[in-house]
Design a protein around this nucleic acid. Structure first.
Length: 499
RNA sequence: GCCGCUAUCGUCUAGGGGACUAGGACGCCGCCCUCUCACGGCGGAAACCCGGGUUCGAAUCCCGGUAGCGGUGCCA
């Protein structure tokens, strides 16, 4: 039952999902292949989000790095949802994460797999370890562990096999030696075994715990490279110990530096666009987000900043990822997004704009493809995000907005006279297009011996209601002679009534 | 407390002993372009956390300190 809801979800979204193979059982891999074999095969990586909320930009970057690595090496990306925390793992959260990945256009090759569904496998492995003496039941409580450590100078907890009611299963950790995480990004990181607790791998009720389940899953899914957040580095020796007890070769690890908010603290709701959905709502393009996220913690040798996704795939190198945590700065994303917006082919721009306007509730605008296209054509140079589009082009779809301040600023004493003259030009311009209007209005400016702005700004306010719009000639042409004249006449009437 | 990671302009970063009077990008300031807003062009201010070593020479290597972050759970 557990896995059913997302199978249904996937089925209903399968058209937009690249290759969502849902496996009800893991690939038939009993143990990891020998390391030499794994290294010669194409890499297998995984993105393993915990569905405890929306997908964070930190998680998004982890997903992106895994994706870039897989796509750049001809490897396989497995999506595995770590949903063993029944409290927080909800269908809504899983749906949200998949939705975020889909919006980012990050596809996966296998999954989504449910970790919770693999409980049987985990239990079998736990039984193996207990039988082999690598793990043992222990009814000790957290307080008992605390007491032991206090009494032993802070060394790792060591218990004795004892079956009691609700005894948890602990892994037997060696007293000697050290466990070394040979991290792709940080190099070797050493942990002394004597300081590591015999940690719990299964609860008193037999359900497996994260550090155990992850290790088993990575092994059974033949993951060759684990690329994940830095917050897992301290857990890695435990997973290595599990793998060792299981007699399985470990994958390689790469721990990414964490992402922080503008205040240097952990990302949170307060920081504005902290989740992928917020980025989408902010009017950002997925390609720009991918470019920006890729550069957070990774840089090119030659300082190239603008990179298409194929270029990212081509140039991304996991070993070049930095070691220090980075701060998410939305201002740079905005700039980058503007660059992508301007370079978009008009057809793609229209498509993105239509989706955004639809979301914003301007369905009527989307329903007029010709006008929408004209609007995009004149506004593409101006907007840095999709959300900036509507204010720039709404005058093409609705009556001018009423902006007192704009009116007061521009409609000075001579405005009526200049507008009157401009109206004459609009009536006479043939054809009514950008080039003709520019030439004709330019002549008018000279004839009136006026500054260009003294003619164009009143015109702009007359047709849009505001002082900010796309180019005035483009705007007039897009509006059309009839509607433009109507608006200029209305403005003249208002000016006449005022004086 | 203990363990671990990290430390170059406000931010993202380049740099991996001499090429560094420390480069690029965002942001900021000024100028130019200009019908508004953007875009674009030009110029500017702005950084190697601190202290010891190693070396002829250190942003780069080592040690210590400090700070930030992460872990330390029968959470993931």
């Amino acid at each position: 039952m557990r896995g059913l809801w997302w199978k249904i979800w996937i089925a209903s979204h399968s058209r937009s999902t690249p290759r969502p193979t849902v496996l009800s059982s893991p690939p038939a891999v009993e143990t990891c292949a020998p390391i030499s074999k794994v290294m010669n095969q194409s890499p297998r990586v995984r993105f393993a989000p915990s569905p405890t909320g929306a997908l964070h930009i930190g998680g998004a970057r982890t997903a992106l790095y895994n994706w870039l690595y897989a796509r750049g090496t001809g490897g396989t990306l497995v999506l595995r949802v770590e949903d063993t925390d029944r409290e927080r793992s909800t269908p809504e959260n899983v749906a949200q994460i998949l939705d975020a990945l889909r919006w980012l256009e990050l596809d996966w090759d296998e999954g989504p797999l449910s970790q919770a569904e693999r409980g049987e496998r985990h239990r079998a492995r736990i039984a193996e370890l207990v039988d082999a003496g690598h793990a043992y039941p222990d009814p000790a409580t957290a307080a008992d562990v605390r007491a032991f450590k206090d009494a032993h100078g802070g060394t790792g907890y060591r218990g004795e096999p004892a079956s009691g009611p609700g005894a948890a299963i602990r892994l037997r950790v060696p007293d000697e030696g050290e466990t070394v995480v040979d991290d792709l990004i940080r190099g070797p990181v050493r942990f002394e075994n004597r300081l590591t607790d015999d940690f719990v791998i299964a609860r008193g009720d037999g359900t497996p715990l994260y550090n155990f389940a992850v290790a088993v899953d990575d092994a059974e899914m033949a993951i060759s490279d684990v690329i994940r957040g830095d917050d897992h580095l301290s857990n890695t020796p435990k997973q290595l110990l599990v793998l060792e007890a299981l007699g399985v070769e470990p994958p390689r690890y790469a721990h990414l530096p964490l992402l922080h908010g503008p205040d240097g603290k952990k990302l949170s709701k307060r920081h504005g666009a902290a989740s992928v959905q917020e980025l989408r709502a902010g009017g950002y393009l997925p390609a720009a987000v991918r470019n920006y996220l890729a550069l957070l913690g990774w840089g090119t040798e030659d300082d190239t900043t603008i990179l298409s996704t194929p270029e990212l795939v081509e140039r991304f190198a996991i070993e070049r990822v930095g070691r220090a945590s980075a701060i998410f700065d939305e201002r740079k994303l905005r700039w980058l997004n503007g660059r992508f917006m301007r370079e978009l082919a008009l057809d793609d721009y229209v498509e993105a704009a239509a989706a955004e306007l639809e979301r914003e509730g301007h369905a009527d605008a989307v329903a007029d493809p010709g006008r929408l296209r004209a609007a995009c054509a004149i506004a593409q140079e101006k907007a840095q995000t999709l959300t900036e589009l509507w204010p720039l082009v709404r005058f093409l779809f609705e009556a001018p907005v009423d902006d007192e301040r704009a009116w007061a600023k521009v409609m000075d004493a001579g405005a009526a006279r200049r507008l009157e003259a401009a109206a004459g030009v609009l009536r006479a311009s043939e054809p009514f297009d950008t080039g003709t209007l520019e030439a004709a209005l330019g002549e008018l400016v000279e004839r009136l011996d006026a500054k260009p702005r003294d003619v164009y700004q009143p015109l702009r306010v007359a047709i849009t209601g505001t002082t900010v719009s796309p180019g005035i000639f483009e705007s007039l042409a897009a509006l059309g002679r009839e509607r433009a004249l109507e608006r200029v006449d209305a403005a003249l009437a208002r000016l006449g009534a005022a004086s």
